[in-house]
Computed example of a mutant assay.
Amino acid sequence: MHITLRAIGSDDADAVVEFLASNTFPFHVLTSSTLGSLRPGVQAGRFWNEETQGYWIDDAGHCIGMAVLQDLRDDTPMFDLGLGDSHRGRGAGTAALRALCALVFTSMPDIVRFEGQTREDNIAMRRTFLRAGFLKEAHYRLGWPTADGGRLASVAYSILRQDWESNTVTPLDWDDLLD
């Protein structure tokens, strides 16, 4: 697998709308969208502005998904990752997340840590975080609204710059107040 990232810009608006409308994202807050609901936000620069930058995820020159860096003015940006329906379950998520880490930590010198969140039932993404060197930092009970009106836990993971550079994971002491 040879993953590369290409910045998304205004010339990509139609392709972004088409990608998002033609795939489902069962573990996102919005699992699917229509062309009409997506177009205004995308054309207004939702994925390319001072706070946010989207990237196409390419594998050997073929677009397989999209990633979005958010909170770029902070020293702890977050990301959203969406692979196309036919590209899931093949290890591309881990490769894409590693490529995102390399992008963030090599081109953004002020970034201290890099964070992402997913639903508690998104086992594939939770394993992807771990394979990419991230550490679970939080479990927000009932923090993720679902399409059916319910709620699930939101689970947060991050990777520290120093851990990415040294290819280690600094452990977290969950029981630091217990004697």
Rank of each mutant, 00 (worst) to 15 (best):
L81N: 08
T76F: 12
A60P: 01
R88F: 01
H87Y: 14
R90M: 05
G61R: 07
C63W: 10
M78V: 09
G65Y: 07
I57V: 15
A96K: 06
G65T: 05
G61F: 02
L81H: 09
A60T: 11
G84L: 01
D71L: 10
T76A: 13
D71K: 14
H87Q: 14
D71N: 14
M78P: 02
G89I: 03
G61C: 10
A96W: 03
L83T: 06
M78F: 12
L100P: 03
R90V: 11
G89R: 03
H87A: 12
R73M: 07
D85H: 03
D80H: 15
G89N: 05
G91D: 07
C63T: 15
D80Y: 09
L97C: 02
D75L: 12
L72V: 06
G65E: 01
D59K: 13
V68A: 07
G93Q: 04
G82V: 13
A96N: 05
A99T: 05
G82P: 03
A67N: 03
A67D: 07
Q70D: 10
I64F: 02
V68N: 02
P77Y: 08
V68E: 08
M66Y: 11
A92N: 15
L69F: 04
D59W: 06
D74A: 14
A99F: 00
G84F: 03
D71S: 13
M78W: 12
L69H: 02
L83I: 07
